[in-house]
Amino acid sequence: MAKPGRPSTISDVAALASVSVGTASKALNGSGSLRPETRQRVMDAAARLGFRPNAAARALNEGRTYTVGMITTDSIGRFSIPILIGAEDALGAGRMSVFLCDARDDPIREEYYLRTLLGRRVDGIIVTGRRSQARPPIAADQPVPVVYAFISSADERDCSVVPDEVGGAAKAVEHLLAVGRRRIAHVTGPEHHHSAQVRAAAARARLTDDGLDFAVPALFGEWSEQWGRQAVSLLLASGTAFDAVFCGSDQIARGVADGLHAVGMRVPDDVALVGFDNWSVMALACRPPLTSVDMDLEGIGRVAANLLLAAINGEPAPGRHTHPCRLVVRESTAAPPGLAPRP
């Protein structure tokens, strides 16, 4: 038994459980082939003594630090924080910690953080950011596994986890068609932006499957509420009727909602409205609350962390892994009065 005033050791646990120190170590680390009753006896002894394994000694014995680095270019945390939460959920089961580093789109800062993390002997690195398009690999021939989350690596040999933006846009259009909308407009971000291109192309392809097209050509602009309000003026100026607007982001959709209200058009009675991101700050503040595509950023973080753990354990999974989106339906979409939704 431990002496008063002295922290308990694994030897104390082994003595109380009537097992060897080696057996106690295996039981506490979840390793080895032990009988369930033996493992439980050791766990009970550790709990009784208030024993906590020495993380530094465990790391030294196993050649690991039980830490992971995360490097992001998303300074405001809109995408990186949910991904971090998901990664911590997955890594916490293995008692691993995450160091978050904000590179701020600065290659020099990114290189500095990479050297710092490697100097701390992290077991692996997750790279993320605020754009889903491919980026150059963080560096070649790293001594630890690297997984890209939300963004992807331009090197197909790297492991990347990305949202299925094509599938998400298709779900948005399918929902609008299901509630009886046929004259669908699309308002999205900058034309050069990867996500704007992908979501617009996917939405149009889904309409084509039903023999339809956008009510007016897709409107590209900014990822902002102001652009959403301006886009309403452009839609009205086109002279073409529309009964739904699918927006490339929730910020744009909230601006569109404001623009429609300003000219006396009702959402969803006159125009159904769908956004993309399911950013609660925007989607729930919209009036009415906004139907939106959720990329499940926390899920992406969990998948990336699990793939990193597998790579750390010698089972890498290179390539591009696509994570499904889901549609969160709220009051901004409904069938027009007198028209039953399509089954």
Results as ranks from 00 to 15, higher is better:
Y113N: 11
L16K: 13
H321Q: 09
D12V: 08
K3M: 13
Q230P: 04
D158N: 11
L117Y: 06
A203M: 05
V173R: 01
V68F: 06
L28Y: 09
R320I: 11
V21Y: 12
R131S: 15
P341V: 12
A202W: 10
A55W: 06
L236I: 13
S152M: 07
M43Q: 15
A15S: 14
D243P: 02
C325Q: 04
R157F: 00
L117F: 05
R157N: 02
W279I: 06
A241K: 14
R287Y: 11
C286H: 00
V256W: 11
V42H: 04
E174V: 01
E225A: 15
P137F: 14
R206Q: 07
A283M: 12
D141R: 02
V303I: 14
A169G: 10
T188A: 00
L34W: 11
A154E: 11
R254C: 14
A2I: 06
R254L: 04
A257P: 05
Y66F: 15
F150P: 04
G5F: 07
Y148S: 05
G314A: 06
F79G: 04
I184Y: 03
D296P: 05
L177A: 13
G50K: 01
G319S: 12
V144G: 08
E88T: 03
L219R: 13
A311H: 02
D210V: 12
P7D: 04
L236K: 07
A340V: 12
M70K: 02
S153D: 08
V42R: 00
G86L: 07
D89I: 06
A170Y: 08
R48T: 15
A140F: 03
E156L: 06
L176F: 02
A17Q: 01
A17V: 00
C325R: 11
V166Q: 13
H193Q: 10
L327D: 06
A285I: 04
L117G: 02
P316A: 09
C101I: 06
G94D: 13
A334W: 09
